[in-house]
């Protein structure tokens, strides 16, 4: 199971500032191991963000997003109790998710 997404959120005046950290190798597919073999590409391709199960934004990434990606965005019309979910899927079909209730 891939590592969980760590999410932080700060709610102020109806806007939620969200920050997420996603532990992931984000291998480009061009690096070589010490024996000279190419390390296969392994990176997050799709990220989805939901508020109370409704998709509010998404991201498509290539392998040039840094290792252990950081991702921040701001949600409109946010209130206490809103549930923010972030999920990712990588090029090997692995997936992970994280969730936060705004307070």
């Amino acid at each position: 199971m891939a590592a969980i997404i760590k999410i932080r959120g700060k709610l102020k005046d109806g806007t939620a500032k969200m920050k997420a950290l996603m532990p992931h190798p984000m291998e480009t597919g061009t690096r070589r191991d010490p024996d000279g073999n190419i390390i296969p590409a392994h990176y997050i391709e799709t990220v989805r963000c939901l508020k109370n199960d409704m998709e509010i934004m998404s991201a498509q990434w290539g392998p040039s997003v840094s290792k252990n990606p950081y991702f921040a965005f701001r949600v409109k019309n946010a209130v206490v109790g809103d549930r923010i979910t972030i999920t990712w899927q990588d090029n090997k079909g692995e997936a992970s998710a994280g969730e936060l209730i705004l307070k």
């Binding site: 963000c49 934004m57 991201a59 498509q60 290539g62 997003v65 840094s66 965005f73 949600v75």
Partner: peptide, 16 residues
């Protein structure tokens, strides 16, 4: 490198 799809419920403001 990255492309973000922005819905009506988020600001056009992303960091990575």
């Amino acid at each position: 490198s990255a492309s973000f799809t922005i819905g009506n419920e988020v600001f056009a403001d992303v960091s990575t």
